[in-house]
Computed example of a mutant assay.
Amino acid sequence: MEVFDEFLAQIDNPKHRNRTEEVLAWVTNKFPNLTPKIAWNQPMFTDHGTYIIGFSVSKQHLAVAPERAGIIHFSDEIVQAGYDHSKMLVRFPWDSPVDFSLLEKMIEYNILDKADCSTFWRK
C-alpha cells in the first residue's frame, strides 16, 4: 500500500481519504497477485502489465474505472446497486456503502477477460 501513500495524502477530506484507503487496501488484500501502481496520477492495479482497474476521487464520489468492457458487462448490476456510471467509470458516492461484491466481480472479470492480453488497454 505504500505505493499509494502520496496519492492518499493529497486527499483533503479525511472521510474521502479513509474510504479510498479502505477500498485500495481491500483490493490489495483480496487480489494479492495484482500489481498496485500510480499512473496518470491515479491509483490502479495491473496484472502481467495489463490494466485491471483504476480509481480516482472527486468531491461527490470515488470513481472506479474497469474499462469500457467492464462497464458494458456489468451495466445492469451497476444500476441495480444504485450507482451512476458513464462509458468509462462507476461513481461510488462518498455517503453510500461500497458494494464490494460488485467491485470483486468487475476485477475478476477483467483478470479473466484480459488473461491473454499483451497490451495495457484493450484493443
Rank of each mutant, 00 (worst) to 15 (best):
D5G: 08
A69E: 15
L112I: 14
D5P: 09
F74I: 09
K59D: 06
C117K: 04
R17N: 03
L89P: 00
V27K: 02
I11S: 06
K105A: 04
V27D: 03
K37R: 13
I53S: 00
E6D: 14
P66L: 08
F55T: 01
T46N: 12
D12G: 08
S58C: 06
Q10V: 10
E21H: 07
V27F: 01
P32H: 09
L89A: 10
I71K: 07
R19K: 15
P36Q: 13
R68D: 13
H48V: 10
R68N: 11
I53V: 12
V57G: 05
Y83S: 04
T119E: 15
G70T: 02
E77M: 05
L62Y: 06
S96F: 10
Q42F: 08
A9D: 12
W121Q: 10
A25S: 14
D47R: 12
L103R: 00
D5Y: 08
I71A: 11
T46Q: 09
Y51K: 02
Q80E: 15
E2W: 08
K15W: 08
D99S: 09
E77L: 05
K15N: 13
R17W: 00
W26M: 09
V79D: 15
K15R: 15
H61V: 04
R91D: 04
S86H: 09
G49V: 04
E67N: 02
E6R: 13
D95W: 04
N33G: 08
E22K: 11
Y51G: 06
K30F: 05
C117F: 00
A69F: 03
S58W: 03
K114M: 09
L62N: 12
K114T: 13
S56N: 13
E104Y: 00
M106R: 01
G54F: 04
S96W: 08
T46Y: 00
I52C: 02
Q60L: 11
K15V: 14
R19I: 15
I111V: 07
F92L: 09
H85V: 09
Y51P: 07
Y109R: 03
I53M: 00
F7H: 13
Q10K: 14
A9C: 10
S101N: 08
R68T: 11
I78K: 01
V57I: 06
H85N: 14
T119S: 15
Q80D: 14
S101M: 02
W121S: 09
Q80C: 12
W94N: 14
I78C: 05
S75F: 03
S118C: 06
K15T: 12
I71W: 02
I53N: 00
S75P: 01
F4W: 09
S58I: 07
D12W: 02
K123W: 05
V79K: 14
H85E: 12
P14R: 06
H48L: 11
